[in-house]
Design a protein around this nucleic acid. Structure first.
Lengths: 252, 252
DNA sequence: AGCGCCCGAATTGCATGCACTTTTGCCGGG
DNA sequence: CCCGGCAAAAGTGCATGCAATTCGGGCGCT
C-alpha cells in the first residue's frame, strides 16, 4: 500500500525518549520487575542526564501505564491488578482485530518477508531466556501494527501490548510460548491469503489463549494494595530468586 | 456493580495535571485551534508556574496526541491529518463498543440518573456555543467509559475521544449536534434494557454517523504537510475569523 | 525592487539549587 | 522485648540560570 502521509514520531529523539525506550525494554524483559523502584537520581546518573530529564521520562512512562507515580514518592514499575490485566487483554483483542482487518490481503512482499524473518527470530530465541521470547512475541504484534501506517493504532497497540507483557511477568508461570509461534505463523498465512474473517478470528483466539494461559488464577484479591506491593520483595525465599535491580537501580 | 479494585488516578493531582486539564479543555472547546502555538514561557506565566512544569505538561499532552512537539520548536496544538482522524474514529468505535458491552444491563440507578442528567445538560446547552455542545457530547462518552471502572479503558476512550473532538474542529462544518443527543438517549435506554447487541449496534452507528457527518471531504491531501501547517494561519481572510489565542497564548 | 545574509530577540534543552516531604534508623520508655 | 517518637538522610517538587538553536527583521548587494 502507498505509505500513508507522515510517519512522524510522537516522541522527540532526545534523551528523554532514549531513557523511555531503555526502561520500556528493561521492564518488558523483566530486568525491572513490577514494583521495582525508579528513583530519579539513580536514573539520571545511570543515563548521564540530570534529574529533570529522568523525571520527564518517568512522566511519559507513567502516561503509558508502565510506571506508577505517586506524589513525593519514588516512582515504581507498575503492578497492574489482575482485573486490569484482564481489561488490557480485552482492549488488546479489539485493537489487534482492527490491525489484521486493515492488513488482510494488503501486505507487500517485503512486509511478508519481514514478518517471516521476525517469527524465525522468535523460533531461534526459543532456547534463550524466557524474557527474550516474551519480548519478541510482543514485538511481533507491534511490527504488525506498524504495517497499518496508522500512527494512532500503532501507539495504542504498542502501549497495550507492553502492559500485557508486564502483567504476564506478574501472573504467568514459567510458561512456554512455543505454541504462540505457530499461531503467529498461521496469522501471517491468513493475512497473506487475505481472508479477513479468518485472520480476525485467529488473532482473537491467539490473544485469548495467551491471556488464558497466563491469567489463570483470579489472584488473591481483597486488600491487594499491601499484598502485591509486598510480593516482589518477599519472594526471595519463595522462588529462590532474590530481588535484583540489575541495571538502573542499585539497592542503595 | 461492585466498584472494582483501585480507582487510581494515573495523573498526580499536581500543577502539571492542572495545566493539562486546562489545555485539554481549551483545545476541545476550540479556544485553541489546531496549529496554535504553545510556548512554554507563556504557559508558565499564565498558570503561575515555571517553564519546567509547563514543559512537562506539554509532554503529557503530546503523549495523548493533542499537542505536537518538535525539537527546538514551539509546541503547537496537533493538526491531525484526515486519515488520522478516520483512524481515530475507527479505534474509537471498537473501544466504545467494548464500553457498552460491559455496561449493558449493569447500570445502577444512580448511574442512570447521572447519564440522564448529563444528556439533559446537553439539551440545555443547545442554544449555547457549538464548542460547549461538542465538549458535552464528548464528555457523555467519557462518563460512560468511567462507569466501566476499568482505568485502562477510561484512559483510551478519553484520549481517543479528545482526539476525535479535535479533528471535528478541523474538518466539520458549523454542524448541528442535536441529533446526537437523541442518539445518546437511545443508547442509555438500550443500556438500561440490557440488550447487548442492540446497544453495541447503536453505539457503532452513532459514532459512525458522527464521523461521517464530519469527515465528509477526503481533504486536499498530496503534499499535505505544507498545506495544513499553513492552513490555520492563512484562514484569517478565508473564514472571516482571525486566528486568536485567547487564553493562554498571547501573540507576542 | 528583489533577494539573500547576518545579527539580535525569542525560545527551547538541560543542569543545578533549594525547600519541602517522606523514609529510615536509632534511642529511650514501657 | 517491643513499641513509639525523633532526627538525619534520601528523595521529590519546582524555579532559575545558562548554553544552544531557531526565528525574524533589517541591511546591503545585485
Amino acid at each position: 500500500m502507498a505509505p500513508r502521509s507522515t510517519g512522524k514520531k510522537a516522541e522527540s529523539s532526545d534523551k528523554v525518549s532514549v531513557i523511555c525506550r531503555a526502561l520500556r525494554r528493561a521492564i518488558i524483559e523483566q530486568a525491572l520487575e513490577p514494583g521495582a523502584k525508579l528513583p530519579e537520581d539513580s536514573l539520571g546518573e545511570r543515563f548521564g542526564v540530570s534529574r529533570t530529564i529522568a523525571r520527564h521520562a518517568l512522566g511519559q512512562l507513567a502516561a503509558e501505564g508502565l510506571v506508577e507515580l505517586r506524589r513525593n514518592r519514588i516512582a515504581v514499575v507498575a503492578t497492574p491488578s489482575w482485573q486490569e490485566a484482564r481489561d488490557a487483554f480485552d482492549i488488546r483483542i479489539e485493537l489487534e482485530r482492527l490491525v489484521v482487518r486493515q492488513l488482510a490481503g494488503k501486505l507487500t512482499k517485503p512486509q511478508i518477508a519481514e514478518l517471516n524473518a521476525h517469527v524465525d527470530a522468535e523460533d531461534r530465541a526459543r532456547d534463550g531466556t524466557d524474557a527474550v521470547s516474551i519480548r519478541l512475541a510482543t514485538e511481533f504484534h507491534i511490527l504488525l501494527a506498524n504495517m497499518t501506517n496508522s500512527p494512532i493504532l500503532v501507539r495504542y497497540v504498542s502501549e497495550v501490548a507492553y502492559r500485557c507483557c508486564l502483567t504476564l511477568s506478574l501472573y504467568s508461570r514459567p510458561h512456554s510460548s512455543e505454541c504462540a509461534i505457530n499461531e503467529h505463523r498461521s496469522i501471517i498465512a491468513a493475512l497473506v491469503k487475505g481472508d479477513v474473517d479468518k485472520v480476525m478470528g485467529l488473532m482473537h483466539s491467539h490473544l485469548d489463549s495467551v491471556a488464558n494461559r497466563a491469567l489463570v488464577a483470579p489472584a488473591p484479591q481483597r486488600g491487594r494494595d499491601l499484598l502485591d506491593i509486598l510480593a516482589p520483595y518477599a519472594e526471595e525465599s519463595e522462588t529462590g530468586r532474590v530481588v535484583k535491580m540489575p541495571k538502573v537501580v542499585r539497592a542503595r
